[in-house]
Write a protein that binds this DNA or RNA. Structure first.
Lengths: 126, 126
DNA sequence: TTTTAACTTGCGAATCACTTGCAAATTACG
DNA sequence: CGTAATTTGCAAGTGATTCGCAAGTTAAAA
């Protein structure tokens, strides 16, 4: 683990929500080149230390977001108003996914899920 | 509905799986400019005639895929080997989504789900 | 520890999937 | 039919991410 990779992993570990490459590039603006950040993310994802998903929002456009990979994965909600994430807890889709997999004879190795809408804080402000 | 929009909608209607903008641009290469295709897709999605999701695959990169919007939405599986989609049937997550929504006080207005892995045909070829 | 081979990084240029500005072409409608 | 509102094509622009390459580091071998 090089310094850059360690720092990127630490930043994602400390974050309470999914982090985009761009956020990391901003954070490490004076330390690492964007290319290094992107390469660190690929490296860490290849080593199964990170999970990621792509999400489009009106404020940030289309970006890939990274979270730590643990043995039990979680899903996220994205608020269309404040553009923050809310943790939806551990994945509860395993049974349904297994069911779909069995029905169609698929070897499902992963799935992506996220929900969008308005979070309680923003809803209150309307 | 202009001609371009009609043709785009027809192409997606006839397709048996999600279609990317790029596929449509290729199909209508000699008829419409890519900008027109993209604008038609935005228009149709804005009119609730289409649903879309973003998916990254090794063969086609990151692209947005479009499907007809019906009252009951479906989810898809994407094969990492042949890069085709398999219909996973109607959404079965509504209860779980409602549950998550209630737990966190979120106003969930939509969700995205897709699974990836190897389809039966490709699995057989290994 | 010197030698060498194997990564990593920074920088700048290149990709690629879209977007946008603008003038010409269509379409809508009074 | 005539004018206003839309839509299209073309070309240039964005923005996230990737790549080539030379320089800097690290690791393994001798």
């Amino acid at each position: 683990m090089t310094k850059a990779r360690t720092h990127v992993l630490e930043a994602i570990t400390q974050a309470k929500e999914p982090v985009s490459a761009r956020q990391l590039c901003e954070k490490f603006q004076s330390d690492y080149d964007p290319a290094t950040i992107y390469r660190a993310l690929h490296y860490l994802e290849g080593k199964d230390r990170l999970d990621s998903f792509i999400l489009h929002c009106s404020e940030h456009g289309t970006e890939r977001y990274y979270v730590l990979r643990s043995n039990e994965h979680r899903h996220w909600f994205h608020c269309e108003r404040c553009h923050r994430f809310t943790d939806l807890g551990l994945c509860r889709f395993d049974d349904l996914v297994a069911q779909m997999s069995a029905e169609k004879g698929l070897a499902i190795t992963s799935h992506t899920f996220y929900a969008t809408g308005i979070c309680p804080e923003c809803r209150q402000k309307i």
